[in-house]
Nucleic acid binder design. Structure first.
Length: 474
RNA sequence: GUCCCCAUCGUCUAGAGGCCUAGGACACCAGCCUUUCACGUUGGUAACACGGGUUCGAAUCCCGUUGGGGACGCCA
């Protein structure tokens, strides 16, 4: 049997992180079994579905590398087919028209709650003669669900789960206006699309019982279900926006790499021994439903960030430069070819220190600043009269150097030694003058990348002019 | 309220009756490295929710308690 999996989001908001994980699991499962991974947009709620949300889902999936294997199916477009199945069921006496009004249903629920019974429709039109139908009330079509026995789901993650059929009521298939409900649409679409495995959030587990009844009523074979636990916030409660319930695009904006997000999501509720850093090929080879945990996982930004730092270090310098370029241009102005070259040469050291693309862009800014470069508060404080005097000496020494990191370092060490100073006492002012900050990649390497003219210029900008070197050292 | 599901360090998890003195990762703390910050590296703190069984033996199986989550729409 060829595996056909699907991701079926409703376009009522962005592609959130939980949805992304569901998509990832479906994608991995399909790849692992050399099957297909499809996308279905569940847009039957015309009020809440938006084009913007549809675009956000496509973009988010694309960014994560989870594009479907076939063009997406739009559920609303299939409403006719859904209604046809409902009429079919009606003809086969497996469904019936119900004329209960919303007010009646409200009363039913209130009464059931007061009596401590399940809040269900009582089936009052199930066997009633349609001739008794009230005038002018458009009926809904309900499934004639079994009333005895129990319904069993052999869930691949949760194991066998059963519910007594008395707990379930006769669900609405077709609304009074003739449009299909979600339950009907999902079952018909999954069947028609040849879906073999339904991998989705735990919140659908109870829906699966009702869907199972529908499959039976249609005499269709049921797909295999796998309900994966939801992602919770750090406090164990529902994931809130503040805690990560954001659109995938928000993670992109925060400077996370898609590889990192995927790796993080994969390890949320799934593990393969002690493996932490998992490549896509490994994930495909190892992924299976059996290893999915049954308990909900809490979202943890710290671990995501740590993974991101790893993938940042693994990324090519070229790629990272192009990733941060737009951000740099926005914050520090246009970037010319020479600056781009500097970024490229400095990237190896820069990326080892960054955790997100945001960090990276910020820490790279000094490479593209025009003189005189802005100094941070700490850098300004560091550059007191004494430090500036040292800089003047250092600049003079550098003038005589071949412009290589190693040689510049020797010159600085010699100067420090001659003045009875520690290297840091010379290097820190130098760093402040050249990068505008007290924190940077190794400073002699920075000097080399920056180039003789620019570096010497920056040193001159901060050095004390016309002060006697002798007095300045003291 | 009714039903369903879940329960190992702070977090993600390994663990499928003896390999467990409970392993790894993130976070945290300390040391080393070092011109700063990182990286790296060495070490450390830290968990089987509780109570009953079953068994020679239980983190692992069963029951209960507690705690958490989810579902109960003519939403999806």
């Amino acid at each position: 049997m060829t595996v056909v999996a699907r991701f079926a989001p409703s376009p009522t908001g962005f592609l959130h992180i939980g949805g992304a994980r569901t998509a990832l699991f479906n994608w991995l499962f399909a790849r692992h079994h050399r099957g297909k991974y499809l996308l279905r947009i569940e847009d039957t709620d015309r009020q809440r579905s938006t084009q913007a949300a549809i675009e956000a889902i496509f973009d988010g999936l694309h960014w994560l590398g989870l594009d479907p294997d076939e063009p997406p199916v739009f559920q609303f477009a299939r409403a006719g087919r859904h209604a046809e199945v409902a009429r079919d069921l009606l003809a086969k006496d497996r469904a019936y028209r119900c004329y209960a009004t919303p007010q009646e249903l409200d009363q039913m629920r209130a009464k059931a709650k007061a009596e401590g019974r399940p809040m269900r429709y009582d089936g009052r039109w199930r066997e009633r003669d349609p001739a008794e139908a009230p005038q002018g009330v458009p009926p809904v079509i309900r499934l004639k669900a079994p009333q005895q026995g129990e319904t069993l789901i052999e869930d691949r993650v949760q194991g066998p789960v059963t519910v007594a059929n008395e707990q379930l009521d006769d669900m609405v298939l077709l609304r009074a206006d003739g449009t299909p409900t979600y339950m009907l649409s999902v079952v018909v679409d999954d069947h028609d699309m040849g879906i073999t495995h339904v991998i989705r959030g735990d919140d659908h587990l109870t829906n699966a019982f009702r869907q199972a009844q529908l499959y039976n009523a249609c005499d269709w074979q049921m797909p295999i279900f796998a309900h994966i636990p939801l992602i919770h916030g750090p406090d164990g409660a529902k994931l809130s926006k503040r805690h990560g319930a954001l659109g995938v695009d928000a993670y992109r904006e925060m400077g996370y790499l898609p590889e990192a997000v995927r790796n993080y999501l994969l390890r949320l509720g799934w593990a393969h021994g002690d493996a932490e850093i998992i490549s896509t090929d490994e994930a495909i080879a190892w992924f299976d439903l059996d290893a999915i945990g049954r308990s909900p996982a809490r979202f943890d930004f710290a671990k995501l960030t740590s993974l991101n730092a790893h993938y940042l270090r693994e990324a090519t310098d070229e790629h990272l430069v192009s990733e941060i370029l737009p951000r740099l241009q926005a914050s520090a102005g246009p970037v010319d070819e020479m600056m781009r070259e500097r970024l490229l040469r400095g990237m190896a050291s820069l990326k080892a220190r960054a955790r997100t693309l945001l960090d990276l862009a910020q820490s790279a800014e000094f490479y593209i600043r025009k003189r005189p470069i802005p100094l941070s508060e700490k850098a300004t404080k560091l550059l007191d009269a004494e430090a500036r005097a040292r800089l003047a000496l250092l600049g003079a020494a550098f003038e005589r150097c071949q412009w290589h990191a190693a040689e510049l370092e020797v010159a600085a060490r010699e100067l420090a030694e001659a003045s009875g100073l520690k290297l840091g006492e010379v290097a820190q002012p130098l760093r402040a003058a050249v990068t505008g900050s007290t924190v940077s990649p190794p400073i002699f390497e920075v000097l080399e990348v920056l180039g003789r003219e620019e570096a010497l210029g920056r040193i001159r900008d901060s050095a004390t002019q016309g002060t006697s070197p002798i007095s300045a050292v003291q």
